[in-house]
Write a protein that binds this DNA or RNA. Structure first.
Lengths: 136, 136
DNA sequence: GTAATCTCCGTACATGAGTGCGGAGTCAAG
DNA sequence: CTTGACTCCGCACTCATGTACGGAGATTAC
């Protein structure tokens, strides 16, 4: 089941370009793969999932450095390190969820208002992300 | 209460650089401000909120083009246009929330496992974002 | 009313995240 | 065993998102 993939097959399976994979490797987001025969990189289906994770995480506003941090949680570290890192990331994620919840509520409100043919008042969307800015 | 701001004051209030504001204006994210005296841009506190919205939305994985779309919901459009756009954006936001929920759950699980001094099995974080990829 | 500060503008530079190029080596099908 | 596709590598290029520069004009503080 752990099919061995060349870089081209991996790229296709993960929906990215070959160059992107080489770039991720250089950036430390993908581990150095084995290179048994002739120096060609040899990947597994785990790497497909890893790349998909990277792509998704990017759409959630994490940059590659953030993502490297998240991926470190995948390796075999001391539990205390993992714990602290996970907790820190958890914080960030919860903040993002809150902000997105606010946008979602604002969008739902707009949709409802429109469907009732009300004239809209002021747009709630901007307001949705403004609160709590002062407290920092 | 609608204090008039110079570009410098606005930048300070919103926590960005002056050049960033000019850049956002060029990019159509901020409307052309009035320029009564001498051609200096004159802003209001609404613009502070608008810029904060832009900054926050960026951390949620929206690029400037996406954000321009969201900000269009602020203007006075035909209700049908607003409705459709809002519904579309709502979809995107809900997907993001789902993905972040999955990451959050994975992180919580890791934190709990660590706190119980269990040896961790395979890392749940990557798995959190992988499901449903095949269906697209 | 002058010096310091701010703003104007266009343009150039910087950074993050890829994308492409070209020549050489490797693999797989016929 | 040749031919075409694939891979190797380093390096140059692109695109989005800002940032910085520099000279000229406006404003404000003294």
């Amino acid at each position: 089941m752990k099919s061995r993939l060349t870089i081209g097959k991996l790229a296709e399976a993960a929906g990215v370009g070959v160059e992107t994979i080489r770039f991720y490797q250089r950036s430390g987001l993908l581990p150095e793969p084995e290179r048994p025969l002739s120096g060609y990189r040899e990947y597994s289906s785990d790497d497909v999932r890893r790349i998909r994770f990277i792509e998704r995480a990017q759409t959630l506003g994490f940059n590659l450095e953030d993502i490297a941090g998240l991926l470190k949680l995948d390796g075999p570290q001391a539990c205390s390190v993992t714990h602290d890192l996970a907790l820190e990331k958890l914080h960030v994620v919860e903040e993002k969820i809150k902000a997105l919840d606010a946008i979602r509520d604002a969008l739902q409100q707009m949709v409802r208002q429109c469907e009732r043919k009300h004239k809209r008042g002021t747009c709630p969307i901007i307001q949705s992300l403004v609160r709590e800015e002062a407290k920092g």
